[in-house]
Design a protein around this nucleic acid. Structure first.
Lengths: 308, 308
DNA sequence: TCAGCAATATGAATATAATTCATTCTTTTA
DNA sequence: TAAAAGAATGAATTATATTCATATTGCTGA
């Protein structure tokens, strides 16, 4: 009904005092404004300007609309400016999910650093594991997924971050410490502690135990790396964790970390984004900061991390 | 560029979750909304909804626009409601001017009473006499003029209020009190006190002195009726005022009021409005209240006022 | 008060934009 | 995985806005 165009017209006319000048400013003809004015005046059933006088003056109704224009138009300009920022990739949304549970350790510093430089990007780290991250990424519910399983999916780009080894953490007093490397079969007599997620998502099962057709004696879960380590230290089980996640706890001297199998169990961590977002500045920049920061963090705790 | 229509579309889609439902609410087809959305998205260079998911969800840019819509649309509705009030004659503007200087006395009570019932009408009583009221009324700079000279003008309607007599106020001790009626020639020896306005606007000149080709000995001016009366009482001149304006001061006993000429000097007061506004409720009502109130006020001071 | 000027109004023609129709493509769900 | 519901698309249509040419009106100064 009443449109912003009309408010702009009203402002232009009152500011310049005539249709001729206002039309010029709006890049229209005087006739266009006259028709437009007549149109809204008849639609609203009120007259907005006193025509019999020059310069044109507002009626009471016109004043009321001018007031509205003066509060509404700035809001719209501001919104349009923000649209330009979104369009230019200066602002946006970054909903991140991690499949790799212990990635917290290096991801949080990365996110904090990123936030400092991209205040207009709304960052959200979802730890909720009640949905499958990669399809959600495909459909736009997520924007970044950290995963170690780069399943080829339409429109998804995987950016390799680093390669790491998964080690078995055992108590110092544990008999397995006698071995150089731990074979799969050795876990038949152990309680395995894992994150409370589906076994499909744990390399220790998919890459190590299942190929050898081994089931651990028992499985129990813990939410945090710290809790796992404490359980291991007190001899209530063993757990498989990335070398860099274990490193800080090695110093305490209560646990040992052993390679798994003859070849060792290696994995690569990937950062997945939608291809269409790959060139968007604020996404591009997050990838860069994530890479930098994870290396810094990992080096800081003296773990050799090899880029894939 | 970005229009209110678009904001309404965005709100409708987010509220109903689909183009089909939103289109229904907006009395459009799904196709129309799809085209519209595509249009603004491409113009802004951002996408506003995540299309791959149903129900449709907003992107960060979309959220920003929704927020704008939620603050802007209510402002617009409110403005449109007010337009309806203006259109229905419930709200408006009443710029009043008085040519008859002493009309203050009964006009102020009228205005006060009117304001109580018509809060949405902006009443303004202009006493500035630096412009000619009737042409200003014609051109819409004024809405009501109180005058005793109903000059026939295009588009102006005169509503008669009441007829009154103009009397000459003199000090009780003044020799003229000996006369029943004052002839024009008697003023040749008097100082005439008037309001500080053009003589053209004073009936004492136009209707009484000039026809008799008489000039008073001297003329001095005073702003207020009270001041005039005080000057008269102290014997420093005489003045011509409406009977009802003089009445309150008669009680003090210091001045007398004498009829002018054989026939007396009578005048009728009119309320002038533009014809086009004659049926507008808030104007109509002002005329009614003005009539009522002036009679009440005049009766209250025991002056015989005759409707024309 | 009137001529002359500058501004606004108007009607018809034109250009632009919005909407629909008919259809295809996509996503969700059973 | 097929069926159903929703969204996208292109062409045709309709509605709307704008211009052009011109008439009308209001203003200014002699």
């Amino acid at each position: 009904m009443l449109e912003l165009k009309h408010l702009k017209t009203i402002v232009a006319i009152t500011e310049h005092g005539s249709l001729v000048l206002a039309a010029e400013k709006l890049f229209l003809t005087q006739s266009a404004l006259s028709h437009q004015l007549k149109e809204i005046e008849s639609r609203l059933g009120v007259s907005l300007f006193i025509r019999k006088s020059r310069p044109l003056r507002l009626t009471a109704a016109g004043e009321r609309l001018l007031e509205t224009a003066r509060s509404v138009l700035p809001l719209m300009s501001s919104a349009e400016r923000d649209m330009q920022r979104f369009a230019g990739g200066e602002a946006g949304r970054l909903h991140i999910a991690i499949e790799c549970h212990s990635c917290f350790d290096w991801l949080m510093p990365a996110i904090n650093q990123y936030r400092n430089h991209w205040k207009d990007v709304e960052v959200d780290l979802s730890t909720a594991f009640n949905f499958v991250p990669l399809p959600a990424l495909q459909k736009g519910r997520l924007d970044v997924v950290i995963t170690s399983e780069p399943k080829p999916l339409n429109g998804i780009h995987y950016e390799p971050l680093f390669r790491f080894e998964i080690l078995l953490a055992v108590a110092n007093s544990h008999p397995l410490t006698q071995l150089e490397r731990v074979p799969a079969t050795a876990l038949r007599n152990e309680t395995l502690i894992t994150y409370p997620v589906d076994q499909e998502r744990l390399d220790i099962f998919t890459q190590f135990l299942r190929p050898a057709d081994v089931e651990p004696m028992a499985i129990r879960t813990a939410e945090l790396t710290l809790m796992m380590v404490q359980l291991v230290a007190s001899g209530r089980g063993v757990c498989a964790l990335p070398n860099w996640a274990l490193a800080p706890y090695m110093k305490g001297g209560h646990i040992s970390a052993l390679p798994l199998g003859e070849a060792g169990l290696f994995s690569t961590l990937y950062l997945a984004v939608r291809e269409e977002q790959l060139e968007t500045p604020y996404v591009r920049e997050f990838i860069n900061i994530a890479k930098e920061t994870c290396f810094q963090t990992l080096e800081g705790i003296n773990v050799v991390a090899t880029l894939h």
